[in-house]
Write a protein that binds this DNA or RNA. Structure first.
Lengths: 127, 127
DNA sequence: CTTTTTTGTTTACATGTGTGGTCTTGGTGT
DNA sequence: ACACCAAGACCACACATGTAAACAAAAAAG
């Protein structure tokens, strides 16, 4: 059971673009992030290469250019990030963290609230 | 309004010990983390020094040894971590992340559930 | 076919992190 | 007073990260 590789903050920005609509070319990623983050194309290239090396992206040579596709699902990566986040703040601070999380987030959709409420219900029932 | 400094994963482990019962000496931290993380005393020393340098810890010379105290509150640090966590996973994934969070955590206390439920209510009312 | 462009590869370099060794100096015990 | 030891200060070193320039190979263009 291989856990998804460690993805750094900048790398996440690249992954987001790839996850959004794979497969993508370096060009496409570069366009998006050149705009969104003011990154030079070379920077994007480096990050793509690193992500390939650490197994977060796959690619196939399509003529002269590469087509990159995610090698780890977004969900997996999010779960891994969440784990590492929890490891840091230690589970004890979960509730304050959650409060902050919920408060600073854009208004939640009704169904999201429902989903969470449901979760809480289950959790609560077990007590 | 200065935001709390960037605290790395290992540094968090040190901070946890300091927050737990300040002020502490390097010795005390070293004892705890030598056990808990199998860290050599020097490792702890380095981390303490780095935390002082980045302004996360304060100290006063008490005889030959230092007494370290937190320079940033735990809450502040947690909030900062939460922000950076959210920046990574991008707010869109919040709910799945929360679900994972809640599911993998130890059973919540009733009052914790209440607090969260209350939060959701407020959030929900605004929709 | 040669020039230009595009795209991937190699190299760079400062700073951060994980993990510790060594040096120095001020207390402490005798 | 003096030797010794522990505590902090300084040094080390490999790997990660952010950010990119330089280089090479191959495709496109003329």
């Amino acid at each position: 059971m291989k856990q998804p590789p460690q993805i750094s903050s900048s790398e996440w920005k690249v992954m987001e673009v790839v996850w959004e609509d794979p497969p993508v070319t370096a060009q496409q990623v570069s366009d998006v992030l050149g705009e969104r983050e003011q990154w030079k194309p070379q920077t994007v290239k480096t990050l793509l290469a690193r992500l390939v090396k650490k197994g977060a992206l796959a690619y196939k040579s399509e003529g002269r250019r590469f087509h990159y596709t995610p090698a780890v699902a977004r969900e997996q990566a999010v779960v891994a990030e969440t784990e590492s986040f929890l490891d840091r703040i230690s589970r004890g601070s979960l509730v304050p963290a959650l409060q902050h999380l919920v408060q600073t987030t854009r208004p939640l959709e009704t169904e999201e609230i429902e989903a969470l409420r449901e979760l809480l219900k289950q959790k609560g029932d077990k007590v």
